[in-house]
Amino acid sequence: MRLLVIEDYRPLQQSLLKGLREAGFAVDTAADGQEGLWYALNNDYDVIILDLMLPGIDGLKILKELRSKGRQSHVLILTAKDTLQDRITGLDQGADDYLIKPFEFKELLARVRALLRRSYRQKNPQIKIKDLRIDLTTQKVWRGRNEVDLTPREYALLEYLAMRAGEPISRTDIWEHVYEFKSAASSNVVDVYIGYLRRKIERPDKPLLIHTIRGRGYLLEGQP
């Protein structure tokens, strides 16, 4: 899942980057309004964490701009502005959540996960596909009774496939949602990681879960 953090206060931005990356997200950061808006408009982020008081363009303007251009990314406002009116304005301008600084990092993570589930209409934090089970909260994966040990990147890939289970997903989509803007990876990397993932998840004695669809990308079995 790919996130954008628009935050001008460097120490906070850096710790968010570190924490979110370690939680398995692909994270881009922007330190001012213009940069933030550019990132937000040119990439398909799952969740944007947005500060309100930004140099350049302020947070609410960015939000307005995104919504008027029809961007569907979920936006979580993260700000020190705590009055009721601020919260109402933020939510009414099209934000999906509002968190006041200082905040607990775990809560931020939980809210980001909730927004992600909402993005993919996935109310249940446990995804079951045949005998594959994914716990979105603890990020653990089981095939049958056996826990599958995945690297963060493999997990991120699986999670994205599972969120969109049953529909074919292009390599570009996968690349955009699992890799960061600044990473050197190209969409070929997707094939490599799909290979790794197959090796860990597929069992010769069990039905195939990840299908390659020629010319279109990949598909994770959709029937539970």
Binding site: Y9, K18, G19, E22, A80, K101, P102, F103, F105, K106
Partner: peptide, 17 residues
């Protein structure tokens, strides 16, 4: 609040593991 948020999240993130 901003610096407090900075301190808090720096500490929390570093304590996760």
């Amino acid at each position: 609040r901003n610096p407090l948020a900075g301190i808090r999240s720096t500490i929390e993130v570093n304590l996760t593991r």
